[in-house]
């Protein structure tokens, strides 16, 4: 065990390298997913049947075909069709598309959850459709999106060991290296799990802080004091669709 710790401290730079690769993939994928979630989410509320239908088909396709298969398809099958993506790009596209589809359900649900009366009040003040969305609906819906977005972000983080399967030197890869040099399998995997747990917890704290700030702007909650609440709150749905009711 002590030998493992010595080795671990010696290889800290490469572990750190792995962490940064994993986080880089997570953040880039999350950004792509966020953009896609809003695009698909807004499309799903369109007056045009065609736009709505297109959004539905894309979402169902991306959700239905398994992230694992999508990633492998992009990595192994797409080059056969003549498009070769860098491994990291493959991962970001696969994660971004898949979680973007789940995220679009969050966006749609949160927009629908803003009471109809808020739209009506905005109409009565003669705000334009864009102003209604931008100034009245989105600021309220946003608060409701944060907890389910956090759930999706943690799921995304948990998918990142897949990076090691497509030749990326991520955290999992680096820890696997450490495992073979030390021969201490148990210590290596437990350490890896602990690092992932810490990363997930840190992300959750960050998202809780974001939620607290957003809520404070709605005159709800008590600011940053609730940031340290456990990350469990609101995880009841694999799609992160169950937006928690606002308010305290």
């Amino acid at each position: 065990m002590s030998e493992f710790l010595t080795q671990f401290s010696r290889s800290l730079p490469s572990v750190w390298q792995g962490v940064s690769v994993t986080l880089q993939a997570t953040v880039l994928s999350a950004l792509l997913a966020l953009v896609l979630a809003f695009v698909l989410g807004f499309m799903s509320r369109s007056d045009q049947l065609l736009v709505r239908g297109l959004s539905r088909v894309v979402v169902e396709f991306l959700r239905g075909t398994s992230l694992y298969v999508q990633l492998f398809w992009l990595f192994f099958a797409l080059p056969i069709l003549g498009f070769k993506l860098e491994p990291l790009a493959c991962a970001v596209v696969a994660f971004g598309l898949n979680y973007g589809a789940y995220g679009s359900e969050v966006v749609r649900g949160a927009l629908n959850a803003v009471p109809q009366a808020q739209w009506e009040a905005a109409v009565a003040l003669n705000l334009s459709p864009w102003q209604r969305m931008r100034r009245v609906i989105l600021p309220q819906a946003w608060v409701q999106m944060i907890p389910p977005f956090n759930n999706l972000l943690i799921q995304l983080l948990k998918s990142t060991p897949l990076l090691s399967l497509i030749t990326i030197s991520d955290l999992t890869f680096q820890m696997d290296q450490l495992r073979s040099t030390t021969g201490n399998t148990a210590a290596a995997y437990v350490t890896l799990l602990v690092i992932y747990f810490v990363l997930a917890y840190a992300l959750t704290l960050l998202m809780n802080a974001l939620e607290a700030v957003a809520k404070a702007r709605l005159g709800q909650g008590s600011g940053l004091r609730h940031v340290l609440k456990p990350p469990s709150a609101g995880i009841t749905d694999p799609d992160g669709r169950a937006a928690r009711a606002g308010g305290v």
Binding site: I154, L157, K158, S159, T160, P161, L162, T172, T185, A186, Y189, V190, L192, L193, Y196, F197, A200, Y201, P230, P231, S232, I235
Partner: peptide, 23 residues
């Protein structure tokens, strides 16, 4: 119970599979 739930849920299933498989 809560600690176990949080830990298992916050860590990748793929690593859990590896760990149990080799251990």
């Amino acid at each position: 119970v809560r600690i176990v739930v949080e830990f298992v849920r916050s860590t990748p299933v793929m690593i859990q599979l590896f760990a149990v498989w080799v251990l």
